[in-house]
Design a protein around this nucleic acid. Sequence first.
DNA 1: TAGTGGTCTAGACCACCGT
DNA 2: CGGTGGTCTAGACCACTAT
Lengths: 236, 236
Amino acid sequence: MIDKKSPIPVYYQLRNYIIQDIEKRGLMPGDGILSEREYCELFQISRMTVRQALSKLEREGIIVREKGKGSFIAIPTIEQKGLMSFTEMVKSKNMTPNTEVVEFKIVSGEEFSKILLIEPWEQVYKIKRIREADDFPVALETIFIPVKLVPNIEEKEIEGSLYEILKNDYNLSIKNSNTSFSAVTSDSELEDLLLLEKGTPLLKLESINYSNDPIYYEISYYKSDKFKLNVNIRHI
Amino acid sequence: MIDKKSPIPVYYQLRNYIIQDIEKRGLMPGDGILSEREYCELFQISRMTVRQALSKLEREGIIVREKGKGSFIAIPTIEQKGLMSFTEMVKSKNMTPNTEVVEFKIVSGEEFSKILLIEPWEQVYKIKRIREADDFPVALETIFIPVKLVPNIEEKEIEGSLYEILKNDYNLSIKNSNTSFSAVTSDSELEDLLLLEKGTPLLKLESINYSNDPIYYEISYYKSDKFKLNVNIRHI
DNA sequence: TAGTGGTCTAGACCACCGT
DNA sequence: CGGTGGTCTAGACCACTAT
C-alpha cells in the first residue's frame, strides 16, 4: 500500500490511500476514519507524517478533525452539477451546445507544474475553445491538461464535452474542483472571439479539477448578461 | 517576542511576529523573509514549528515558498472558501474588516415572497452595507430578511457579521446557500460607494441563504481586481 | 481513565537553486 | 558548493472528549 522508497512522498501516498479506502468501504459524511496513531501503526510511519496527510485532506475539504474525538468524513461543502459540464448546463436550458476549437497544441507545463503536480519539463495540451449556445458564443475556455494523461487526444475529439471524453475514453472522472470567481473587462481577443462590445464585463473562472489527483487546469471567461453560473453551497 | 510559556501556540506567535515584522519593515510583494533555519536560531525553536507557522502564512496567501530559494511576500489577493462570512475572510488575510450601513429600513416583501416563502403583505428589512477591508471598500451588499425572523434588530447591531448576529442573537444558523455568479459593469451608485473608476467590472452574487427554510436574500457586488471568491466543489 | 487531535523537539536526508 | 525548502523520524506533553 505504502512504499517508503517511492519518489512519491509517504504523506501523499497515505492521502491517496485514505481517499481510496473511503471509496472502497463506501464511507459517508460523518463516518470516522482511523486515528492518527492507528495509521502510524498500520504503515509504520511517524505521526507527523500521518498528520501531514490528514492536514492535506482537511484543507481539501475531504475530512474534518475534532479534538479529542477523531477525524471524520466531511459534509461536502458544495454540491453542483452544472458547473462541471458546459454541455449539460446548456442542454438544461433547452439550447443546443456547440464548440469551436480555436487553439490546440502542446506546450511546456512548467508554469502549471505545481498546480497539476507534474515535473516542470513535462508537457501539457493547451486547448482553447469557444463554447456556444444556439450558435451564440457565450464563453472562451482554455484548458491545460498533461499530455501523459490523455495521450494522442485529437482535435476533433475535443469538440464535445471534455468531461465525457475524459470519462469515456480515459476513464478519468472529475470528482471535485477548486474554482475561483472574479470579474474582468474584455480585451480585444475576447471581443473578437465572443463578438462583444468593447469593455464588456466578463465572469472569469479559474479552476483546478481533480479526480483524486489534479487532472486539468481551466481558465474560462463567460458572457454573463444572459448566462449565470449557479452553485449550491452546503455550509459546514 | 515569543513566549514559550504562553497559552498561544509558538507557531501562531511566530506567524503573528512575521506579519508584524513585514509591516514594520515595510516589505513589499516579492521581498524575502528569513529562512526557516534562521527563525529557528532567532527564537530557539524547532524547525517543524517554524514550518507550521510558514505553512499557515502560505495557506493564508501572505507568503509563497520556493524550493531552494526561500520564502517571499506574496502578491496579495483575498480569497474565500465557502462563501460564508465576509468578516472571517478578511480577518484571515490579516486585514481589518469594517462595515458601513448605508441603508436600513423596512420595505414590502412582495417582490421576495416567492424566494423567502413569505406572504406578499409581509415586511422585510432592507439592509444595504458597504464592506471594507483595511478601510478600503471592497463590496456593496444588500440583504432582504423578513421582519418576523429578526424582530427589533437595530442598526448598530448590523455593523458586524450578519452570520454571527443570526447565530448568536436569533439562533438561526445558515446551513446552505444557492448562489449565482455574474459579472456586471459598475453604475454611478456603485462607483460612488465603492470609490471605483467609471466602468469597473464587478462580481455580482445573488444568493438565497437557508437554515432549513429560506432566511435571507442577498445581492452583492464585489470589487474583484484583488478580490477573488474561492469555492470547493464536490461533484456528485 | 483511556484515547484523541494539537503542539513541539532535535535531529536527519533529500532535491533544488544560485554562485 | 552552501543554503533553501520538502520530507521524515521517534519520541514528548497538553487539552479535550467520552466512558
